[in-house]
């Protein structure tokens, strides 16, 4: 059964980009270009800095447990592909 990486708790993100660097290491490179995960900065309410996370589905071919584990603020969760499909039907 396939695993799907989700940024379930993205409000926890502190913008450290360790997830981006982990993904890129798994792809054999150092850098930001071509990363299946991107971290964007947004301006939230009361000028608070908030981040959003863009995830390309191609990330699920990688070691998603390792990506989930590197995040210091537990932004990510991993779900089974079948659960994702059931959620969609509901």
């Amino acid at each position: 059964m396939g695993k799907i990486l989700k940024a379930t708790f993205k409000k926890n993100c502190i913008g450290c980009e360790l997830c981006v660097f982990e993904v890129q290491r798994q792809l054999g490179k150092i850098g930001l270009e071509g990363s299946p995960i991107r971290v964007f900065r947004e301006k939230g309410e009361k000028e608070k800095i908030v981040y959003t996370i863009g995830i390309d589905p191609s990330v699920n071919k990688l070691d998603v447990e390792k990506i989930e584990g590197v995040c210091p603020t537990m932004v990510f969760t991993i779900e089974d592909e079948s659960k994702e499909a059931n959620d969609y039907i509901e």
Binding site: N12, I14, G15, C16, E17, L18, F21, I49, Y51, P72, T73
Partner: peptide
Amino acid sequence: RIEEISVRKSGSPSCSGCPVG
């Protein structure tokens, strides 16, 4: 070795490559 970083985590915006925040 994050415990050796001489500052506390606070959930604040972090620098690129630093998990402390």
